[in-house]
Nucleic acid binder design. Structure first.
Length: 894
DNA sequence: CTTGGATGGATCA
DNA sequence: TTGATCCAT
């Protein structure tokens, strides 16, 4: 009941764009923020430092560079790196107190939350985000010419299998300009997936741009840095995230999965790092994920079990259907303590004492949680580990929880132990325990919202269904992709049909690409999950063959650049290949020695070798060590650069989709140096030509690496003085941020009530959310500072669609939000309202536990963000697939 | 004298 | 539902 994972339909396997955002050595960053004097120094965070310097729980990158790892004690770290600062976790009640990090983690999550409510916190410093909807929106805008991807946003972005992001962009561009080239798709993927596969790279790239904005916001608002993975599912996002750290992000392109998996140890996949992964390797006699392709689904099910077999069958093909299940607050609150060796608890008094300490912490945290989230835990679990003749036996007992003061908790905890543990005391002795206790834990959970609405999920579900966009529940892509009125493809083809004799230049390359795909002969249909003979799904992707002669000048130019790079690469290949290739291939099977990729602290070098290895196997011609990846990226995609460096002038930019989509903002083409390659090739042309040494390089690199420093991309917010990325999205989101700030903690309570009343109202006026022009709603209007307002307006003007939607009469373009009074262009109102909705939903989520929805795979769970005036239609099959109560039942209960 | 502590989520019978 | 166990950070 309380929770399980949700899954999307397999037909949507490539439709989502998922981020995994992981804070870099989070505890260290928290300490550095709290004590600025630590900045730049190698540090480690330790708990309990009396014995051997304490246990290290986090190491920053400066210390890792000196060879300090986790798994060391504080003293060993000192040996390894005498300058290291060991920061102690404070002790409260004789226990390590981690609340600092929880609070900081929440700060981060609050920033993330502003970008999507499809946010799943995976731990204190990690979160999954489903940004499919935003990607689709931008994709649409891109196609409409109202959104431009700025390459600058992609500094610090990597794509697995590509030496630098510029090459990835180039390839996307060239594929778009040269659609006949992608025949290979149809060989490698199910024909039903072709549309999604074709869009995959571009959508991931857009996702990376969004991810960059998100990470910049995190940095700006919390000062913390993080890394991220961008992929079509959670597991791949997680995998990608670990490949380039710290402060970097990594795209895991669909086309690279098979070559990546060839030598990816099974244990690298989340969920396979432990006993189960070891089992898999033992039983199937495999080491690498790619080897699993040789088994049919039935074989896997036979050797493992049904569920795991199927999961693995899909996983080794890069498919993971687990949905991002929105959850901001944890489902349980617990604390525990070890009592190793001599410290084990043998007497009643000691046990009471420690139960008391744990109870106090629980009571504290419960109270805080109640204040913030307005919920109460209804269950307590007391766990313990006893040593019974040299064997550790763990047990746990649960009890209902009704009183929340530490004394009651302690009392109940002790009682449940006594009552339910056989031979608790030594015979004839009421004070001595029969078996010593080595570990104690108290955890509370089964939260119930405090204000009447006990049935956990109904509230959110009702919310979700009532609103237009219903972003939180289930996967937004599921509905959109199946929805025939969905933005991308159908609209495009329709337009194409209609405009057949219209101006040809209106047709973008992307449109042609889709049109081209439509005309392809269909392939025989085949169910991908059940058939045994479709092992070819991913494992027979042909190596990237040399591109056929590109038609457009632009593509030709890119090809030239590639060729040039190939020559360069041949010169430098030896430098790379000598020390590489062993790291990933020779890696041991999953062992407890965790994360060997980062264990050495040589992450940069290792990731480079990792790519080199993958590229070699893939036979890709793009393994050149880049000297200036970003300079190249700009050069490759900037139309200005193309024209400038070309003697011939043809093909107006409009014919190349990407030439238009990628807007060259800074044609200064400042050479940017990758530190890794700089080390390798100190005399590369870009660097030597500058004739300066490290100082120039560092400043230049820093400038590009941290977009905050580049003023030309930013405007200043008059409200807070902070710099904001000067695109419409960022400005909007920043404005919303200020609005969100107004919802102070005191206001939350009031806001909750407001939401509550809306719930009852909504029964009668479901359509009231429709964005309508409301002339007299500007009362609550928060006076925007004129300057920022002006910037927004002008940018919006720029962003306005060139063609008005047909269904909306074009009267006044400006409307004001009847929730906050903010004035904006009509077209932006749906999005803006979504923001309010998100906020409301967030508040309601605070109140109770997570949403549980089983995504039944019915079509059109969601209405797309388009057609704002149309009331939400919920497909009956989707409702049927839902195990929750139908919405009508909820209303009748009210 | 301990061989990663503290914490949270999930699965399965 | 509960309790034992596993997984991950």
């Amino acid at each position: 009941m309380s929770s399980t994972r949700n899954f999307i339909n397999i037909s949507n396997k490539y439709d989502r764009v998922i981020l995994l955002i992981d804070m870099d050595c989070f505890y260290c960053q928290v300490e550095e923020k709290l004590d600025p004097s630590l900045a730049g120094k190698p540090i480690a965070v330790v708990q309990y430092n009396p014995w051997r310097g304490g246990g290290i729980i986090a190491v920053n990158y400066a210390a890792r560079a000196k060879g300090v790892t986790r798994h060391m004690r504080g003293d060993e770290a000192k040996e390894q790196c005498p300058e290291i600062e060991l920061v102690k976790v404070p002790n409260v009640r004789e226990k390590a107190d981690l609340s600092k990090y929880r609070d900081a983690g929440k700060d981060v999550a609050n920033v993330l939350q502003k970008f999507t409510n499809l946010l799943e916190r995976a731990s204190v410093d990690e979160a999954y985000l489903d940004i499919t909807a935003e990607v689709n929106k931008r994709m649409e805008n891109m196609n409409a010419g109202t959104f431009f991807l700025q390459p600058e946003i992609l500094v610090n972005t990597f794509a697995v299998g590509y030496e630098n992001i510029g090459l990835y962009i180039s390839e996307i561009t060239s594929k778009i300009s040269n659609p006949c080239d992608d025949d290979e798709f149809s060989l490698s993927y199910d024909v039903d997936d072709t549309p999604a596969v074709r869009k995959s790279d571009l959508r991931l790239l857009i996702g990376a741009a969004i991810c960059s904005e998100i990470r910049a916001a995190v940095k700006r608002e919390t000062s913390f840095e993080c890394s991220a993975g961008i992929a079509h599912n959670k597991i791949l996002a997680k995998l990608g995230c670990g490949m380039n750290k710290p402060n970097k992000q990594t795209i895991l392109p669909l086309s690279q999965i098979s070559s990546l998996f060839v030598n990816l140890p099974v244990g690298k996949i989340k969920g396979l790092g432990g006993k189960f992964g070891f089992d898999v390797c033992e039983r199937l006699k495999v080491k690498y994920l790619g080897e699993l392709l040789n088994f049919s689904e039935v074989e896997l099910q036979r050797k493992l079990d049904g569920k795991n077999g199927s999961w693995l069958y899909l996983m080794c093909r890069g498919i993971d259907l687990e949905a991002v299940t929105p959850r901001f607050y944890s489902k349980s609150i617990g604390c525990c303590k070890k009592f190793p060796g001599r410290n084990s608890i043998t007497g009643l008094k000691t046990l009471e004492h420690w139960l008391g300490e744990l109870s106090k912490e629980i009571a504290d945290r419960l109270e805080k949680d109640f204040d913030e989230n307005n919920r109460r835990a209804k269950q307590m679990v007391v766990g313990y580990v006893q040593e019974i003749n040299t064997e550790d036996i763990s047990s746990s007992r649960s009890v209902p929880l009704s009183a929340y003061d530490p004394e009651s908790i302690q009392k109940v905890a002790l009682e449940v132990l006594k009552r339910n543990t056989d031979q608790f005391f030594k015979p004839g002795n009421d004070l001595a325990l029969n078996n010593a206790i080595k570990f104690l834990s108290i955890s509370v959970g089964k939260f119930e919202s405090n204000n009447g609405c006990n049935e956990q999920n109904t509230l959110q579900q009702m919310f979700a269904k009532q609103k237009k966009k219903e972003p939180t529940v289930s996967c937004p892509s599921v509905g959109e992709q199946n929805d025939p009125s969905s933005d991308l493809e159908p609209r495009i083809t329709l337009k194409d049909e209609q405009n057949r004799q219209g101006p040809v230049s209106k047709t973008t390359a992307l449109e042609r690409m889709f049109a081209n795909q439509k005309a392809k002969p269909p392939r025989p249909q085949e169910s991908s999950t059940n058939s045994d003979n479709d092992k070819t799904l991913l494992n027979e992707i042909p190596p990237t063959k040399p591109r056929t002669t590109p038609t457009s000048f632009f593509a030709a130019h890119l090809n030239k650049i590639k060729q040039q790079k190939l020559i360069e690469s041949q010169k430098a290949t030896t430098i790379i290949s000598e020390e590489d290739n062993n790291l990933f291939c020779d890696e041991a099977l999953p062992t407890s020695e965790e994360n060997s990729v980062s264990a050495q602290g040589e992450e940069e070098a290792q990731s480079a070798s990792f790519f080199a290895g993958a590229a070699q196997i893939h036979g890709s011609p793009t393994k050149a060590p880049s000297t200036s990846f970003f300079a190249r990226a700009i050069k490759s995609v900037s139309p200005a650069a193309v024209i400038e460096s070309s003697p011939i002038k043809q093909d107006p930019p409009s014919t190349s989709f990407f030439a238009r989509a990628i807007k060259s903002v800074s044609p200064k083409a400042k050479p940017e140096a990758n530190p890794k390659t700089l080390k390798r090739k100190p005399d590369s042309p870009e660097i030597s030509s500058t004739n300066e040494t490290t100082s120039t390089y560092q400043t230049e690199y820093a400038e590009l690496a941290t977009p905050e420093l580049r003023d030309e991309f930013y405007i200043k917010c008059e409200t807070c003085g902070k710099k904001i990325l000067s695109d419409e999205e960022s400005i909007q989101s920043h404005q919303d941020h200020h609005l969100a700030e107004e919802l102070s903690r005191q206001q939350r309570e009031e806001y909750r009530k407001e939401v509550q009343t809306k719930i009852s109202q909504s029964a009668s006026q479901k359509k009231s959310k429709t964005p309508t022009v409301n002339p007299n709603a500007a009362k609550k209007a928060k006076p925007n500072s004129p300057k920022v307002g002006a910037s927004i307006e002008s940018i919006m003007k720029f962003m306005q669609p060139l063609t008005q939607p047909d269904d909306i009469p074009s009267t006044s373009a400006q409307v004001s939000c009847d929730k906050c009074g903010k004035a904006m262009h009509r077209d932006l109102m749906p999005e803006h309202l979504d923001y309010h909705y998100a906020k409301e939903l967030q508040v309601s989520l605070n109140r109770s536990d997570m949403v549980k929805v089983v995504v039944g795979g019915g079509p059109a769970l969601n209405k797309s963000i388009k057609s704002p005036g149309v009331p939400k239609k919920t497909s009956s099959s989707a409702v049927a697939a839902n195990k929750s109560k139908p919405i009508t039942q909820f209303f009748s209960q009210l």
